[in-house]
């Protein structure tokens, strides 16, 4: 069997005050150092929300894995990622009978959430799991013909630094990105999980 080419990964980072970020900033920095990854800081590139549709569509065409990286705001993304969806995922490009540009690509959210993991379930105060809350994006991926992966999430993000949980999370993030790039992630198994974090080691196949 011939070795398949590496997957090209596009990270769309949305954080409106990156200078104060404790989680997404370091994650983005770690990702930027990995070969074969394109990191786009949406708030830096479009500070006035004037998203360049052609450029963004071109970027999508040039990558195989699309990642929304962001803090969880009101159970969804910061505003610019919604704007990005509204503008870039045009009929005839991303969906519709001729909109097949994204078919077969992988999609996932990498996010940080304020609440503890225990809050994100039926009995918790957030009542839904993260994957359930992100269903609009799961359906977006589905309508665009993309394969959806469950979120890679850090819970209790406000206290993660104080409690020394960041280092481990960053290491896992790097491993995940490398596995995606080198096609070592067990996609079929992963697609059925609630999240990518807990079973990451089992999901990564040895070469």
């Amino acid at each position: 069997m011939t070795r398949k080419a590496a997957q090209r990964i596009l990270i769309l980072l949305a954080h409106p005050s990156l200078d104060r970020s404790e989680v997404n900033g370091p994650l983005a920095q770690a990702a930027a150092e990995i070969e074969g990854i394109t990191l786009v800081d949406l708030y830096a590139e479009y500070p006035d929300f004037q998203i360049d549709i052609d450029r963004e569509q071109q970027r999508l065409l040039e990558h195989d894995v699309i990642i929304f990286q962001h803090p969880l705001y009101w159970y969804s993304t910061p505003a610019i990622l919604k704007e990005w969806q509204d503008l870039v995922l045009e009929h005839g490009f991303a969906y519709g009978s001729e909109g097949t540009a994204l078919h077969g690509k992988l999609f996932l959210n990498a996010l940080s959430a304020g609440g503890a993991e225990a809050a994100y379930r039926a009995e918790g105060y957030n009542h839904f799991t993260i994957r359930e809350l992100l269903q609009p994006m799961e359906q977006m991926a589905s309508l665009c013909g993309m394969r959806y992966l469950p979120p890679f999430a850090l819970f209790g993000a406000r206290t993660a630094v104080d409690e020394g949980r960041i280092g481990h999370h960053i290491d896992a993030w790097i491993e995940l990105l490398k596995a995606l790039r080198d096609r070592k992630l067990d996609i079929e198994t992963a697609q059925n999980l609630a999240g990518l974090n807990s079973d990451l080691n089992r999901l990564i196949k040895e070469a």
């Binding site: 998203i51 549709i53 509204d86 503008l87 045009e90 009929h91 969906y95 519709g96 009978s97 309508l143």
Partner: peptide, 15 residues
Amino acid sequence: ERGWTPPPKHYTKDM
């Protein structure tokens, strides 16, 4: 208008 153009009428038939 680019970017805010609604999809064509009856586009849901394609779905």
